[in-house]
Design a protein around this nucleic acid. Structure first.
Lengths: 177, 177
DNA sequence: TTGACGTACGAACGATCGTACTCTTAAATC
DNA sequence: GATTTAAGAGTACGATCGTTCGTACGTCAA
């Protein structure tokens, strides 16, 4: 068992030196615990990826900086086992329930954030006209999420470069001057 | 619980109308059952994706046909819940053990298969010279794997088109005449 | 006919899961 | 100082997990 399912009441109680009853008293149920965990994971993502770049100029500059931070975070999130956001995303995509919904909401916010910068970049002429923002966002997401299995399953150590290269191609930057 | 972990001895016994002991008598342990399941998943993938295109000319023609079949399979694998290969990949990338290793082996074979066609395509002048095959393979993998969460988490129904577009960009086809 | 072998059964095991209780204890409020 | 509130311990529950027994069947070879 791995991922969110490995965060169990009993294990958490052990780790905290508490009783199971004490843990379940804090969170009211397993589902609440999972939801709070998902919130923490997303908060960490935003802190590590969005916070350092949010002050940059909207549009291509901030978009590229965000992609770089994103890819760096996925390749080395500061803990072992690979990016937790990727983990919970692929863990809960096929399920139903509040946890699935919470993850979808968080990802939707990130998608919107990216899409806005793409639109600004297109309007500014920094990205090719006619750029399909949702399609580009899909590409960025996928290339970032591919880092985890490439690293952990195949031991690839160039994933950060690969992902960034791919993102530039998706953005159509290679065909612009 | 979802994915490979949801394939449990007791549940399987129920489904088959057998006793748990009968099931565990067939497979010798849970791990063996998981390994055989992974083999089945990969066999299905090869049947649906590789088999229809393997007779095509090596190089770009077969590569593009494989990508199309791949993306179609990921978007509609013929069962509910999203591509099982993607599922087990992201489920077991951070674990250790025989199941993790088996998945890595299977994926490595698929990677090699793609890389060979890429090399042939480059040699034939159908792909840009200097193409970094492992990097391109990484991009194709990621774009295919992104389909599942996009469909199941966000309800995207254009993932097949998006993934294929992205693959062409990664391959550098848009910049060639 | 006998024996070996494979298949499947029912039952039980120790773990662990999430959750529901009661009881103690310490802090906060009046 | 008395009273209310809340945190946490302790215990128990029903499920389910993977696994291991002993046993009852077949089938097939000797």
């Amino acid at each position: 068992m791995e991922g969110l399912d490995s965060v169990t009441i009993g294990r958490l109680a052990d780790r905290l030196g508490m009783s199971k009853a004490g843990v379940i008293g804090q969170f009211r149920s397993k589902e609440k615990l999972q939801l709070e965990t998902v919130d923490l994971v997303m908060e960490d993502f935003r802190t590590q990826v969005w916070q350092p770049v949010r002050h940059l100029d909207a549009g291509l500059p901030r978009l590229l900086a965000a992609c770089a931070a994103w890819v760096r975070y996925a390749a080395d999130p500061g803990y072992s086992g690979g990016c937790l956001l990727t983990q919970v995303t692929y863990d809960y995509d096929a399920r139903t329930g509040l946890v699935h919904d919470r993850i979808a909401e968080g990802r939707a916010r990130w998608r919107d954030s990216l899409r806005r910068d793409i639109d600004v970049a297109v309007a500014a002429g920094d990205l090719p006209p006619g750029t399909d923002a949702p399609q580009v966002v899909y590409g960025l997401e996928s290339l970032a999420a591919g880092i985890t299995p490439a690293r952990l399953l195949h031991g690839d150590d160039e994933t950060e470069k690969w992902a960034l290269h791919g993102m530039h191609a998706i953005l159509g930057l290679s065909s612009m001057k």
